[in-house]
Computed example of a mutant assay.
Amino acid sequence: MLRVWLRRTSFPLLCAVLGVASLSVSAASLPAPEGEVLLRVTGNVANPNVGTELHLDRELMMSLPTRVIETSTPWTEGVGRFEGPLFRAVLEAAGIESEQVRVSAINEYDAEVPVSDLERYDVILAIQQDGEPIAVRDLGPVFVLYPFDAHPELLNETVRHRSVWHVGSIHAP
């Protein structure tokens, strides 16, 4: 009787434990970057890959769930084709649970971005425009991009201030 009970309870329990273990391994599985670091995620990072931070190069960023957004912006001419990881995917990879994050540009401009924006819209961290890496002189290397044309309500001063270009880091309190 004990043997039957063990077989009935042990196998599902073992599967559940292994399932949880594999989820935690995959969440923390980003290796240290091999290329130039484009983005540092600091603060309350549960899944760091360099010290207490998550550092991402182009390859690591593109390994996360990405999107292409074809949109016009207040800072570019015409409609551009922008590509990069979903902002929320970067936060998930870092293991960040926060209501807002601070995005800092390499020129020391900062903006607070509510995580609710990232859940409601497919905001990306654009690293390519029209198939090419975004250069620092052209809003790069990382640009917080909201899908403006798909959601005209985003064309307001508040969201424009959250659309940081020249992004160097994201900080989660």
Rank of each mutant, 00 (worst) to 15 (best):
L118Q: 09
A28C: 13
L30S: 07
P85M: 11
E97G: 07
G35T: 00
V113K: 08
T71F: 04
P173Y: 11
P65D: 02
E83C: 01
E108R: 13
S26N: 06
L118G: 02
V45N: 02
F143C: 01
P31F: 00
G84S: 14
D138E: 12
P12G: 08
V164N: 04
L60M: 11
S169M: 15
N107I: 10
G78T: 00
V136F: 13
L56V: 14
P48V: 01
E112I: 09
T42K: 11
A46G: 10
T71Y: 07
R102F: 12
E83I: 00
E36P: 14
V20C: 06
A172Q: 00
A94H: 09
L91A: 10
A111E: 07
L145A: 06
P133D: 12
S63G: 15
V25A: 15
I127M: 08
D122S: 10
V101M: 13
D122P: 13
V101H: 07
E53R: 06
P33Q: 03
E153F: 08
N156A: 07
Y109C: 05
E112V: 11
V50Y: 01
P85T: 10
A32Y: 08
V68D: 05
L14S: 15
E70A: 10
E70W: 03
P114D: 15
T71L: 03
D117W: 04
N47L: 04
G95V: 01
L54N: 03
T42Q: 01
S116N: 05
R40I: 09
Y121C: 02
I124Y: 05
S163I: 06
G78Q: 09
R88C: 07
T76N: 11
V103F: 09
R160K: 09
W165H: 06
S24Y: 12
E153L: 02
L39P: 07
E70K: 10
L64M: 01
D117P: 03
E70D: 12
H171G: 11
P48G: 00
E53C: 12
V17I: 05
E97C: 12
G78W: 15
N107Q: 13
E119Y: 08
A16P: 04
R7L: 11
L23T: 03
V25K: 13
E97R: 14
T52W: 05
E108A: 14
I127V: 14
L13C: 15
G168V: 00
E77K: 13
D110P: 08
M62S: 05
L64K: 02
R160D: 03
G78D: 15
C15E: 01
A27L: 06
V164S: 12
E34G: 15
R162Q: 15
M1Y: 02
Y109M: 11
A94M: 04
H55I: 02
S72N: 00
S29G: 08
L56F: 09
V17D: 08
I106L: 15
V136T: 15
D122W: 03
P12R: 14
A135L: 13
L86M: 06
G84I: 05
A32T: 02
R3W: 08
S72P: 07
I69C: 06
H55C: 00
P152Q: 07
P152L: 03
